[in-house]
Amino acid sequence: MNFLEIKDVNKTYETKQVLHDISISVPKQSIYGLLGPNGAGKTTLIRILNQITMPDSGQIFLDGKPLSKDDIANIGYLPEERGLYKKMKVSEQAIYLAQLKGMDKQEADKRLRHWFIKFGIQNWWNKKVEELSKGMQQKIQFIVTVIHEPKLLIFDEPFSGFDPINVNLLKNEILELREKGATILFSTHNMASVEELCDNIMLINQGKKILEGSVSDIKQQYKQHKYDVVYKPFDCSEVTRLTVNATNPNELVRDIINKGEIVSLNEILPSMNDIFINLVSSSNN
């Protein structure tokens, strides 16, 4: 069952078409990575999902129903360019933004206290945002994104600008949110995080989808049948390490058994980084 379904979305700004017939399917309770170089159209697509911009054509379904104004309460959005009112108290600000998402004031207050306890930041309640460090503000921004317990979470470059400690915290929170039933869509340049977190990805370049699928399938699809082999030849006491091309792993094993004693044998799967660079540069040509 797909929680989010985007069908043939097009968007043109003035003369430049930034999205060409984009379609994606995001299964419920999965993490979906939106990959692509700068200016590929990721942010435009994300803004369309948040109903900040309207698509020229195409349809979007959330939980099987066409996306509507009421879905604002079902979506949590952490934009790439993010900030808070500097002069406003942290708690007032978070409650205000939660209210704009349609939450009741008392309920927002209650949940905010829960989050403050969870992050151990109770003493920030009455502080102004300008008194907080950048890392502290990032925590608040994250809380603001999730406080209304949205079913769909959209993070635009969530790891950019976050310090390593907060990146880690964010990753754990994202995984926890999925466990609790949320569907997560995020755009990123950070390929390591894609391998770590994403169930499915889409690669977009110049407004066109060039790849979509599950991370493991894609890796299989783009593997170059390379194996990392470590073995100890019969005529030598030192171990040898080789990278071998082979179409059939069984034949490879047979081959090596004849030469020496196998220490380890692993298939080398391409990293998402390599796939990304290869596909983007070939589609640019």
Binding site: N50, Q51, Y77, P79, R82, G83, Y85, L97
Partner: peptide
């Protein structure tokens, strides 16, 4: 300038 705008326009 403080970039809160994008969060707000995703709600209103």
């Amino acid at each position: 300038t403080n970039r809160i705008i994008e969060v707000i326009v995703s709600s209103v």
